[in-house]
Design a protein around this nucleic acid. Sequence first.
DNA 1: TAGGTTTTCTACTTACAGTCGATAACTTAG
DNA 2: CTAAGTTATCGACTGTAAGTAGAAAACCTA
Lengths: 204, 204
Amino acid sequence: MQALLWQRAQAPFAGAFALPGGYLLGGETLEDSIRRHLAEKVDVRELSHIEQLVTTSDPSRHPSEWQVATAYLGLVPSDLDPELPIDTYWYPIDELPETAFNHGTIVLAGRERLRAKLSYANIGFALAPHSFSISQLRDLYAVALGHEVSATNLQRVLLRRELLEATGERRAPGPSGGRPAALFRFRSRALEITDQFAVLRPPG
Amino acid sequence: MQALLWQRAQAPFAGAFALPGGYLLGGETLEDSIRRHLAEKVDVRELSHIEQLVTTSDPSRHPSEWQVATAYLGLVPSDLDPELPIDTYWYPIDELPETAFNHGTIVLAGRERLRAKLSYANIGFALAPHSFSISQLRDLYAVALGHEVSATNLQRVLLRRELLEATGERRAPGPSGGRPAALFRFRSRALEITDQFAVLRPPG
DNA sequence: TAGGTTTTCTACTTACAGTCGATAACTTAG
DNA sequence: CTAAGTTATCGACTGTAAGTAGAAAACCTA
């Protein structure tokens, strides 16, 4: 799991890494502003989901100014690999570099939000390609949740909730053979809350 | 379920009802600001829980100014009945009056947040008195969730999660008799997320 | 055709939510 | 004092979904 960070050239926090973002323009919506600043870093059309995360007002977050900042959680499909400008990188969030402001905390808050929503919403659509095998999806969930996930159980849980549907196609087997995997897609690509709640516990 | 509203005397939205709140002072934390404005309306020491709800930036929320506003959800125990200043009332949220800004939407968002947290957190501590019978708690949950709840099931679910503990005391029976109810309390009065998720479905 | 690999299916087990009726512990009325 | 009414509590049963494991399917290469 990776976060998009860029290295600040100027004070404050020169040299530290920061999430994309910036000041709000008058009359602008927060989400519009986020998309505008993000567009300077990456092709934002592929943003599969975005939601408000938290608004921080702690006076200590900025060394000289007093700021109020609203963080958003944005997700892109795992098969996306857009070109990035210089000084901008995808960082594995388990090994974050020194971050500016409170951005390290915000990244962790985003991960927690994602983990929770995997249990009670169809948020997986934002991480997965348009069509995928259950094994691919299992691996995505395992990375996002931080523990192993049973493919059998994952498939049953998501099918029972009618979040997944089979495309009818199969993926060509890999070089070492194996049964070709049936492909699935999410029925909806907009966030929907489930009335069930699968913890998808780690095995063992 | 009721929301604390006061009637605005001045434009914009003169005569309409609004949630307590106001402008942020420089260097002030959002939560500090909320508590400061709230203290003008009601004794705020009894606020058993407060959490950030949503930050709105829609330019249409205010007729003349462009504003960014952060809403908080605050809860008080059900047995609390503080004195209120003139023009300030508890309103049943099913029959809200005409509200200023987007405050009607915010109240509904707060209710949804509360309903969700009742299923996967110990948020009930913020609504219940310090000690209570299971029947009392059942009635609280029923009001908050909007449907009947089984006392037997509620007790078992909350005990299994170790959110409740018996005080050992019993409540005096009512005027019409009946077995005196054993009293319980929440083990913790700080928000804790459960790793289970009980939907507490309506019976039938 | 045999052996290896990956996916998929199916049956079994476990755990908890939801239901229902019996029992306990009080009241008041006669 | 006893019976009837009321409220709370307990315990057993049921249904459903999650978690597990092993067998079968469908491909590959040698």
